[in-house]
């Protein structure tokens, strides 16, 4: 993707800090806020990333550790569900990680949803622009199955791209697990995935739903990072975006994501 048309910053430094504090408050105290473009209709995607990077600066200053990134809105199902037409990225920290098969509290989330993703762990630095799918595969240490628990801080899960980018791509929690595999031992696009909630199948798809190949989403992420003046360091954990549509969860729900060749990832939600 190109952000040429939307690279222009329209927000002042003061506005960026103000919106960042608004998002940070909603994230840490788990309440919904109106989408940011209601107040700043001219807000661009570049403005959204400026707010997101300010949010990251504050989290890191508070002692959080960045573990990687996530690509979002990478499948046609997700873009349709959310009414946007370009993917986005968000950062991941250690505070968002939850162990496989654990109880995940919902009291500090607004309206969580779960989606199945293929996650990549890198062993070489990746730098855009011009990063390709093959560059990503060459730089990959291993892939593993993951579930992302997204949680838009915007009322009714209704947003536009600048707002969702500012809200760190709706990132909230993530669970990696299952069986790590080398990419050369797999045909990633045809890997099947099933999401089960409380024993019932609620979503199913193949990984090709993510831009034709999950590594394509990682390449796109690296190229967006380049536009933000960053690279993807070796050792990063990167989620390639929801293969299935996002499924709402609440306390009492139990979720299993089952992946062809990659095993499964399970969790349950509590108050």
């Amino acid at each position: 993707m190109s952000m040429d048309q939307t690279l222009t910053l329209t927000l002042s430094r003061e506005d960026i800090v103000r919106l960042c504090e608004r998002v940070e408050g909603a994230q840490t105290r788990a309440y919904a806020i109106p989408k940011l473009t209601d107040e700043y209709p001219a807000m661009t995607i570049a403005d959204g990333y400026a707010v997101q990077l300010e949010l990251r600066r504050r989290f890191l200053a508070a002692g959080h550790k960045q573990v990687g990134w996530k690509a979002g809105l990478t499948s046609r199902a997700k873009m349709k569900q959310m009414g946007v037409d370009v993917p986005s990225i968000g950062f991941l920290t250690d505070r968002m990680a939850r162990p496989e098969n654990s109880a995940i509290s919902t009291h500090d989330l607004v309206h969580p949803r779960v989606e199945c993703e293929v996650a990549f762990v890198t062993r070489k630095d990746l730098q855009g622009p011009g990063c390709t799918r093959q560059d990503v595969l060459d730089a990959t240490d291993y892939v593993l199955p993951a579930v992302e628990i997204i949680d838009s801080r915007f009322s009714g899960f209704k947003f536009d791209l600048p707002s969702v980018v500012a809200d760190n791509g709706s990132s909230a929690r993530f669970v990696g697990g299952g069986r790590p595999r080398y990419v050369e031992d797999l045909d990633l696009p045809t890997l099947g995935v099933v999401m089960e909630k409380n024993g019932e199948t609620v979503a199913g798809a193949a990984a090709a739903a993510v831009l034709g190949h999950p590594a394509e989403a990682i390449a796109m992420l690296v190229n967006i990072l380049a536009e933000l003046g960053e690279g993807l360091p070796a050792g990063s954990f990167v989620m390639s975006g929801g293969i299935t549509e996002a499924v709402p969860v609440k306390a009492g729900d139990s979720v299993i994501a089952r992946f062809q060749e990659l095993g499964s990832v399970s969790m349950r939600f509590v108050e």
Partner: peptide, 9 residues
């Protein structure tokens, strides 16, 4: 790509 699915469906 027109659609993706899985056997479990």
């Amino acid at each position: 790509i027109f659609s993706t699915g899985v056997g479990a469906a």
